[in-house]
Structures are given as C-alpha cells and as structure tokens.
C-alpha cells in the first residue's frame, strides 16, 4: 500500500495518478456519508470517511484494520487535517485526532509514504 498525505489542494490525487498509474475511474472518493470501497485501487479523501466515523461513533482505524486484506495493494490518500490549531468544537477535535491516528496506523502499514507540498512530492517512507 502507498499512502499519500498532505494539505488540501496540494496535488495528492494527481500524484497518485501520475506516479502509481491509477486511473481516474478506479478512484473511490469518500464523502461524509460513510460509504467506502476498501477494495478500490485507490481511495481518496479518507478524511471525509473519518468525519462520518466520528459522527457515528465508529473508529476509522479499526474499520481499516478489519479490511486490511482488501487495501493492502492500494493507494490511499488523506488530507493531513491534523496540523492546525486544536479546534474549539468537540466534533472537529475528535475528527482531527481520529484522522491523525488512522494516518499513523496506515503509515506503519504502508510500503511508501509521500507528503505533497505545492505539487511536489516529499518521500517520508
């Protein structure tokens, strides 16, 4: 599995397509509705899935762990929403921490971790 993280609009999805030959049609884009296809070639906007999890008392890292066999060879993309100021709102705090914990778990599982910055790739692992 390859993990791509970085800020919003930094070119993560474009990099996944370019570097790992992911076709647009094979990318599952998460929304706030909790739907996810763990067996997709690529899963983008995982931070939207974690927001649904937080709102529905689910642990995203547990859910990913339970489906590990399905995404082991995939490209996973998540925005690093956990770098800013601690939010005042409880839900945003929980979202931020759940996303950070999931990314830490996925980083451990990943063969490679890349952080995007202004369209440039920085190899973290």
């Amino acid at each position: 599995m390859e993990l791509i993280i970085g800020g919003a609009y930094q070119g993560k999805r474009e990099y996944a397509k370019r570097r790992f030959s992911v076709e647009e049609g094979r990318i599952f884009t998460c929304r706030e509705d909790g739907e996810i296809d763990f067996s997709s070639r690529c899963i983008d906007r995982i931070e939207e899935f974690t927001l649904w999890c937080v709102r529905n008392d689910a642990d995203p890292a547990e859910l990913f762990r339970a489906h590990r066999d399905q995404w082991r060879g995939s490209v996973l993309i998540c925005t690093d929403i956990f770098c800013g100021v601690v939010p005042l709102e409880a839900e945003a705090r929980a979202w931020r921490e759940a996303t950070a914990r999931l990314c830490a778990y996925l980083s451990g599982e990943a063969a490679g971790v890349t952080r995007m910055f202004c369209g440039l790739a920085q190899k973290l692992k």
Binding site: G7, C83, C118
Partner: peptide
C-alpha cells in the same frame, strides 16, 4: 493554509483552492 480540521465557508474554501493553484504554479 491547507492542513487544519476546519470546514470553511465556500468563499474561504475557494480562496484556499486558488492560493494553492498559484503556489503550485510558482513551485
């Protein structure tokens, strides 16, 4: 300004996307 856990209003979100576009063009 791209790595925080805030849901911005559409105007601010557009500004973030636009600034990222300019940043990437410069990079």
């Amino acid at each position: 300004i791209y790595s925080d856990a805030v849901r911005y209003d559409s105007f601010t979100e557009k500004y973030r996307a636009d600034l990222a576009f300019v940043d990437k063009a410069l990079a």
